[in-house]
Amino acid sequence: MSRIKLLHVVRPAAGGMKNHLINLVRYTDKKRFDVTVACPPNTALWDELTALRVQTFPIPLVGELSPTRDYAAVHSLVKYLNQSGTTILHAHSSKGALVGRLAALMARTPVVIFTAHNSIFYEEWPEWKKKLFATVERFLARFTDKIITVSDALKQELMEREGLPAKQLTTIYNGIEVEKFAAKVDAKSVRRSLNIPELGPVVGTIARLAPQKGVSYFLKAASLLKEYQVNFLVVGDGPLRETLEQEATELGLQNRVIFAGQRENIAEILSVLDIYVLPSVTEGLPLTILEAMAAGKPVVATRVGGVPEAIAEGKTGLVVPSRDPEALAVALAGLIGERDRLIRMGANGQKHVKEKFTVSMMVEKTKQLYNQLLTVVMQFQDNIPRSIT
Rank of each mutant, 00 (worst) to 15 (best):
T149G: 01
L328D: 07
A38Q: 04
L65K: 09
Q156E: 14
A248V: 00
G15D: 09
A331F: 07
V9H: 03
Q350M: 14
L332Q: 10
G317S: 03
A73V: 06
K146H: 07
R303L: 05
G252A: 14
G100K: 11
M345W: 12
L332C: 05
V62I: 14
A331C: 09
D34N: 11
T86G: 07
V190G: 11
A260W: 02
V299A: 05
I196L: 15
Q262K: 14
R108Q: 12
E198V: 12
R191Q: 10
E227S: 13
S360Y: 10
K220F: 03
G96I: 09
L209C: 01
E338Q: 15
A107W: 11
A116L: 08
P110Q: 10
E309P: 06
I147M: 06
E313K: 11
K95F: 09
T87H: 09
I176L: 00
P298N: 07
K351G: 01
S193Q: 15
V136G: 07
V37L: 12
D324S: 14
H117M: 11
Y370E: 02
K365H: 13
I266A: 00
F357C: 08
E162G: 02
T86H: 01
L209Y: 02
I343E: 13
T56G: 08
V202S: 04
A107G: 08
F33E: 01
L61M: 14
Q229L: 06
Y27H: 14
Y217A: 02
Y80E: 07
F57D: 04
P126A: 03
R142N: 10
K31W: 01
G85K: 11
A294N: 10
P60F: 09
K220G: 05
P126Y: 11
L65C: 04
P279I: 00
E264W: 09
I120N: 03
A207L: 11
R386Q: 15
N348M: 04
F33P: 06
R3W: 00
I266N: 08
I148L: 15
K5G: 12
K220R: 15
P126F: 12
H20C: 03
M378K: 11
A182Y: 06
S322M: 07
R53T: 00
V319W: 00
Q229V: 01
Y71E: 00
A260Y: 05
S94C: 01
Y71K: 00
L285R: 05
A72F: 02
K18R: 15
E250Q: 15
L244K: 04
A14V: 14
T36C: 13
N174D: 08
E48D: 13
M159E: 13
R323K: 15
G284N: 13
H75T: 05
P239A: 13
E227R: 12
R142A: 13
E64H: 12
N19P: 04
S76L: 00
L24Y: 04
L194M: 12
Y228T: 06
N348D: 10
Q212C: 01
L199G: 02
R241W: 04
R339T: 15
K220M: 13
P211E: 09
I147E: 06
Y217I: 04
L253A: 09
M106A: 14
F380V: 10
S271N: 09
T87L: 11
K213M: 07
I172Q: 04
A166N: 02
T43Y: 08
Q254R: 14
K356G: 02
T243F: 05
I4C: 06
S322W: 00
G238T: 02
V277S: 01
P165Q: 10
Q381Y: 08
V300N: 07
M345V: 13
V62Y: 12
G305D: 08
L332N: 05
